[in-house]
Computed example of a mutant assay.
Amino acid sequence: MPQATTPDGVKLYFEEAGQGTPILFVHEYSGDWRSWEPQMRFFARRYRCITYSFRGYPGSDVPAEAAMYGQKHAIDDARHMLDHLGIDKAHIVGLSQGAFATAHFGRQYRDRALSLTLAGIGSGAGREGHERFKTDAQATAQRIRRAGMATYAESLNSNPTRSRFRLKDPRGFAEFVKHLSEHDDTGSANTMQEYQGKRPSLYDFEAEWKALDLPVLIVCGDEDEPCLQPSLWLKQVLPNAGLAMFAKTGHTVNIEEPDAFNRALWDFLVLAEAGKWLPAAPVDKNAALI
């Protein structure tokens, strides 16, 4: 059972496939190492692909102490995975909670990233509603402690950002819910409480995003309402970012639309590695529009 041990003694489960330039996949709150299977199979044809579970998730250790969770741990654990595998730099690909970790990984460890992919990023991170999001996350953590993850997983059947996935692919959605129901109650509640319930707003780091010149791909489903404006905002402030918007698609873009996601990511990686993913030319505000 492959595991990487962090400096604070937490064992993180991981799997890898393929050879070549490394890609580290970082999952969402409702996912785990299994969430990236469509990408592991596709990108392992050319790349060295690594998928792992956050602390508190299937295969990894589940610390009992709430203080062992949170955004700082998630960012550092991604770096520990690279250190354990002897990887100097990698493409970092994250979804939702994993996209937050990926963005801040690039901000803090810019020299360890070849590029960043931020999919489904921004829920609860805007200037408005951020404090409400954190309050709701704390309440959700308490519900998970009382009712368990099987009940939480079932509630996603009526989540509007997940409903398109359920309509398109009932079999795939059922597997997604089943995997989520298997998550540990303590690890999930602690993650919701300490990560979702305490993370800062993306907007708090505007100056640092403007200075982050890594190649960045932002991916958003047009029915992932909480992520639309933050994705557009990040496109505006990150100097070398591109935005891919998927029509009639919700939050879990990589498994809801795996072919489209893989193609967009593949094209991005090829251009980034060729040095052709470049910032847009400055706009001359005095130039004629037509």
Rank of each mutant, 00 (worst) to 15 (best):
E208G: 01
R162I: 02
G275W: 09
G250M: 08
G275D: 04
P2S: 11
K235H: 13
A139C: 07
T135R: 12
K134L: 10
E15K: 09
V62E: 04
E175V: 09
A90G: 15
A244T: 11
E225G: 03
S35M: 13
R146I: 03
K285Y: 04
K134G: 01
G124H: 09
W277I: 04
Y52S: 00
L238T: 08
C49V: 11
P58C: 05
T5G: 01
G122S: 04
Q138Y: 00
S158Q: 08
P200I: 02
D259C: 08
S35H: 07
Y47A: 04
H73V: 07
A44H: 11
A174Q: 13
N159C: 04
I92D: 06
D184W: 06
T21I: 11
R127H: 02
Q142C: 00
I121A: 07
A272I: 02
R107Q: 15
G94T: 10
T252P: 10
A174V: 06
R46V: 06
A147E: 13
Q71A: 08
V62S: 01
D111N: 15
T102A: 07
E65K: 09
Q229K: 09
L167D: 14
T51N: 07
K210Y: 05
S30L: 12
G250A: 14
I87D: 05
Y69P: 04
A74G: 06
D8N: 10
M149I: 01
S188M: 01
Y109C: 13
I92Y: 04
N262I: 05
A247F: 01
F25G: 00
T6E: 10
W277C: 06
E182A: 15
P63K: 03
P7Q: 00
K134V: 00
E273G: 07
L95W: 00
L12K: 12
A4W: 15
S158A: 11
V216R: 02
P22N: 04
K276S: 07
V93M: 00
